[in-house]
Design a protein around this nucleic acid. Sequence first.
RNA 1: CGGGCCGUAGUAUACCGGUAGUACGCGUCCAUGGGGUGGAUGUAGACCGGGUUCGAUUCCCGGCGGCCCGACCA
Length: 417
Amino acid sequence: MRQSRLFTKTRREAPKDEVSKNAQLLIRAGFIHKEMAGVYAYLPLGLRTLEKIKAIVREEMDALGAQELIMTSLQRKEVWEKTDRWDEAKVDVWFKSKLAAGGDVGFGWSHEEPITEMMTQYLSSYRDLPVYVYQFQTKLRNELRAKSGIMRGREFVMKDMYSYTADAAEHKKIYDAAIDAYLRIYRRVGLGDRTFLTFASGGAFTEFSHEFQTLSDVGEDTVYVHRGRGIAINEEVMRDDVLSKLGVARNELEKAKAIEVGNIFDFGGAKSEQLSLFFKNEAGENVPVHLGSYGIGVTRLMGVLAEVFADDKGLVWPATVAPFRIHLISLGKDGDEVARAAEDLYEVFKNAGLEVLFDDRDLRAGEKFADADLIGIPTRVVVGRDALAKGALEVTDRATGAVELITREEILRTYHA
RNA sequence: CGGGCCGUAGUAUACCGGUAGUACGCGUCCAUGGGGUGGAUGUAGACCGGGUUCGAUUCCCGGCGGCCCGACCA
């Protein structure tokens, strides 16, 4: 894409009402627009990164055999009454409204209830199981206090997967597979070395739930990391009996701040019972379907990536989630020799299938470099007089600042999509 | 929901009980062209309502909005 046609612009200063690093940088770089507190629009650059993250998550969900669908944002009151979660005293984040035709509607803050009730239409025999479904949905939550930029908003995108299995044994298989899939996701977006499967309080059905916590000072949770085993324990369950159950000693643990980037639950059969989701087993008995729930806050994950990898110059995206792979910068002017060479190169890159943002604007080099640093595309290719004279291209790594001179053929080989 | 702070051009800020100044941005022009270049010129602003006052952007009250701490957070 030509940067001269990109409608967003970078800004020198962040809005004064944004304190979090992720919001400041994402707004300055033109990735997001704040509509109101806790509510952000995703602009072209931000959307590209969001879609990159989603594509990775989608691949891993599909690999589990999960089927993608999309539920509705408007939800029926009756569904939530069945599990006693329509009451605002029970769930305090509801947005609700009335239908003009009469009746109440809720705006989906979660989809476990509707999706599980929907499944009564489709699951009735042990032969139908297991089934795994997932969606990317915008969740609407009437948070009392939105904060931390896109990391805790009133409107955000979540990937939620649900597993419907016949029994605990079958559930365990998908649950364990989901853990592996999640860890692969975090690895692929660049957070593998600092994201840990974390034992947390379990709720009604199991002793533990499992969170995925990324170590970061912006986090609100405190976890105890066992580096050797690659796991962590949430402070809320940091007790001697838990330690012995997990077979770890207190002195092997490292205390750290972390932010939750995923959470998976075993619901057992209780919610299915409430919502009348039963199936007939081989003996002809009616049995509640075993339910599992698996969530990743996709937009939060983007915020975490922004926070974790940024430096004093701006964003630094891992190549797997960057809005573009290459930032091609022309230092030419008015169709001169340099500008023409850059145009040629842009065509070559595009035709080779490289995702390239082409800075063809008539600006000074310094501004272009500053913008490129702020936007954080992993690889910068500069076309200037020097490069032209040497017959090689100047390639700079955003993360390390390392510069090398290489030929266009090498670039095509190295960065081919 | 408890507590605190704050609303001035598109953005960031300043001053002031007598209708607002600067920087960035944006427009035009000249110079410049490898790390936010220099100059000229133009553009654009007091959240809303009420009160006090001769006069309110400024003081007071209310509303709306924003941020922070805590609480909350499948």
